[in-house]
């Protein structure tokens, strides 16, 4: 008896003849965002963990100083969107590979999708509505450029 095994990566469903081939664009996205994320995350890790006193220097004043600059705001928002979509698409691949039950798979993918959307919205709002000098905050907890009340 001879069993024929599909070639690796043979899709469950053939790519649609018409319209957008989402799996193809997902594949391209993983590679394109991955290359950008290497730069963004290595820069993030270097500035936060290597420069100065590293992790022990991180506090509200440190983050306030960084996020008061549009440069770091956009850096962090780009990282947020690219990394969460990259990560949740990767998790979707794992569910497709390992989930044996369609219902469980759909629930897991739904949970991944919802958590990605919620965290992208939350993170974006935080970055752009953040006030580095909140009223009434103790002066020793906020960045040195904050006006002393």
């Amino acid at each position: 008896m001879t069993t024929t095994i599909d070639a690796p990566r043979t899709p469950i469903r053939p790519a649609p003849k018409k319209g957008v081939n989402w799996e193809k664009w997902g594949w391209i996205y993983m590679r394109a965002s991955g290359v950008v994320l290497v730069v963004l995350i290595f820069g993030h890790l270097f500035v936060n963990l290597m420069v100065g006193d590293g992790v022990s220097a991180i506090d509200f004043a440190f983050v306030g100083g960084k996020l008061s600059s549009p440069f770091w705001q956009w850096w962090d928002v780009a990282m947020l969107w690219l990394a969460l979509i990259h990560g949740s698409n990767g998790m979707r691949t794992l569910v497709n590979d390992y989930s044996r039950n369609q219902t469980v798979g759909k629930i897991l993918k739904g949970a991944i999708f919802v958590s990605a959307v919620v965290l992208i919205v939350l993170g974006t709002l935080v970055v752009f509505t953040f006030d580095p000098c909140p009223a009434g905050a103790p002066a020793d907890l906020v960045a040195s450029f904050c006006p002393t009340s």
Partner: peptide, 16 residues
């Protein structure tokens, strides 16, 4: 990490 960083929007004390 997104959730802990979001605490900067709550208060300096919570984040620290």
């Amino acid at each position: 990490h997104i959730l802990d960083t979001a605490l900067i929007r709550v208060s300096p004390e919570a984040y620290n």
